[in-house]
Design a protein around this nucleic acid. Sequence first.
DNA 1: GAGTGGATTTCGCAT
DNA 2: ATGCGAAGTCCACTC
Lengths: 246, 246
Amino acid sequence: MRKKIIFIENPSPQIFLENFRKELGKNNVLIIIGECRIEYRGRASSELGYGERLIIIKKDKSIIVHRPTGYEPVNWQPSQCFYKTRIVDSEILIEAIRQRPFEILKIFFKKVFIMISAYIIDESIFKLHGDEEDMRQALVLNPQLIEDNFKVLEIEKEIDGNYVDIYGIDKDAKPTLIEIKKNTAGKNAVLQLYRYMMLYRKKYGRNVRGIIVAPKLKINALKLAKNLGIEFKRFNAKLAKKYLSK
Amino acid sequence: MRKKIIFIENPSPQIFLENFRKELGKNNVLIIIGECRIEYRGRASSELGYGERLIIIKKDKSIIVHRPTGYEPVNWQPSQCFYKTRIVDSEILIEAIRQRPFEILKIFFKKVFIMISAYIIDESIFKLHGDEEDMRQALVLNPQLIEDNFKVLEIEKEIDGNYVDIYGIDKDAKPTLIEIKKNTAGKNAVLQLYRYMMLYRKKYGRNVRGIIVAPKLKINALKLAKNLGIEFKRFNAKLAKKYLSK
DNA sequence: GAGTGGATTTCGCAT
DNA sequence: ATGCGAAGTCCACTC
């Protein structure tokens, strides 16, 4: 029942590197607390002077550097990066390198307080129910919410590499594109739908209706929609959940 | 030189809660490794069955839940949330609650392998050099992008404690101050540049041109710029990167 | 590999 | 407080 977790406390640079390399090869999750400075070069560049931080390296070699506050990591490297380690001026240097795009994260440790290595297993499937998905599902199952006698033909319909949430025909068999937004829709949403309508027109050579489904439309977006002949249908995630729970 | 780090290994639920509450109150960074399931309800909702995970709670009470792979946390709560803890069916329940918007994250621990509590200090200032720096560099290396026969004399020129992005002379040897914005520039940018021009005039006793370099100028900023005799040159980071990659 | 759109996006800055 | 746009966004997906 006890989990095997390895602790290395206050290691010398040599001891640290030795163990770091060993543990990194085990597909373990590594946790390091230490005093370090950080450099990053890549799509942007950053520097962070000395301070005490928490560094996590996961099985997939992704790395995140956390300061004592803030939800987001201050520096990071996504998975599939690789590591180089050495001692520079009696400091431990860990380089996490990403190939494409080429980016390099350098962590210089003045002092490692602790390194923890644990093999942790997590096979569960993460289920996320997003609001926009709920709304789409509710509309697909209850197309009368869109309009009487509306027929859904396709969800996530592809038009030249773009995706329309719902594609269907209205009671007069007129093709209709529906864009769903879970929050108040703005001009971007309207323009996005308009672009899809133009793409549809070009590809299929016929006019198409466009409907924004959202809890609200911003005032400017409403004006724009009117000018572009785009309709608006009020709907929201809470309502959607009600329909889905029936 | 040793850092005080508290370890609690394989605690009973009672011992864990006792220590969790105590350490949470210390503004420490808490690290928990354990087997747990997770529920989230809020802007969306999610479930995650039992598995071994790494949970981090920071000084500001932000919480992130990490699986053994992936750069991103699987669940989280931003700073300023508050905690409720209790034992439910012999499991440890930690609730992290956010008020606005109302969101609740529930972690049910079947087993805590270890809890680590550390007071870590990090006062350094994080410096990120992003697109604006690229734009400046591209302009310095290709001054004809500003104007034909433009000559860069100084970057980050200091005028009474303020810093102008680029200082140079135009084809008629007229001194010119350039303010770069990577995003749409507003009135503030215009006023900032105008202030630098005034400072320059005062210090050197001669007129100076002012140019805002940005992808766009807000309509009000454009009007203001015209009134103040400030010019505008369209440029952006994407373009800059192209020039820099040559 | 490039391009598009979503995200519990988060974050910062302006209005 | 709300809205808008950027982010080293990341990520999943299709062409």
